[in-house]
């Protein structure tokens, strides 16, 4: 469930759109420099996984469910720029074909889930990894922790946007927004567990492919043949 049209004022939506597009251009340039051809299917699979996972709701409390954001998962697997691109592609296709999230709010959604959750969560992961022993086990744990924190962060991003430029002037929604962030702490726990499980499975079987892990090699297909 993403921000629909008309929730945030047009001015702020436009600024967010320009910002998200600028981020997109930077991410494309950076991703081209390191996304070797072997990483393209991995990036695409991460995108498909994020897309599919956003359709699967997992239980949080009785009667309440949440779905994966997948930002940190994608960024740790294929790097922050490609992670941002993945979130932008997923959100774009969802808004265009699945009518999930407003077209005019696409910039806001990309900033929250691509900018804050994926890129912000990735840097959180890098900083926390520096304080660990950098073993595969801590890669898994730290990525899960960063993913868990990234969810309420993204919700807080929405809360700030809504407080600054929400079209709603009648009600002070402060309490509602705190409740929103609170439930996202719970959803974040699920996100952290699933992210850790997936990163764990990939690190165990293909440590050379995980961009955020110290074992990453950055090989191209040609290196395999040679």
């Amino acid at each position: 469930m993403h921000i629909p049209d008309g929730f945030i004022g047009p001015g702020a939506s436009a600024i967010a759109g320009v910002g998200a597009a600028g981020g997109f251009a930077v991410a494309v340039r950076q991703a081209k420099t390191y996304l070797t051809d072997r990483l393209v299917p991995l990036a695409a699979l991460s995108a498909a996984f994020v897309f599919a996972a956003q359709m699967v709701n997992f239980p949080v409390l009785p009667g309440m469910s949440g779905h994966l954001i997948g930002g940190v998962l994608a960024a740790v697997l294929v790097g922050p720029s490609a992670g941002y691109l993945i979130m932008a592609i997923v959100l774009g296709v969802q808004a265009l074909v699945f009518a999930d999230g407003g077209l005019s709010a696409l910039g806001l959604n990309i900033i929250n889930l691509g900018g804050i959750a994926a890129v912000g969560g990735y840097w959180l992961y890098r900083v926390m990894l520096r304080f660990s022993n950098r073993s595969p086990r801590s890669v898994v744990f730290v990525s899960g922790l960063a993913a868990a924190i990234s969810v309420p962060l993204a919700a807080a991003g929405f809360a700030v946007e809504f407080a600054l430029a929400g079209t709603t002037t009648s009600v002070s929604l402060t309490s509602v927004l705190w409740a929103l962030i609170g439930t996202h702490v719970l959803i974040g726990i699920g996100e952290g567990i699933i992210t850790a499980a997936v990163i764990g499975a990939v690190v165990r079987s293909r440590p050379d492919l995980v961009y955020g892990a110290p074992t990453y090699t950055g090989q191209r297909t040609e290196d395999l043949v040679a």
Binding site: V40, P41, A44, L45, A47, A48, F51, A52, L85
Partner: peptide, 16 residues
Amino acid sequence: IVTAIAGFMVRYIDVI
């Protein structure tokens, strides 16, 4: 690079 990722993504979604 964007259309390549998006193209593979669309083809993987149903598999996943």
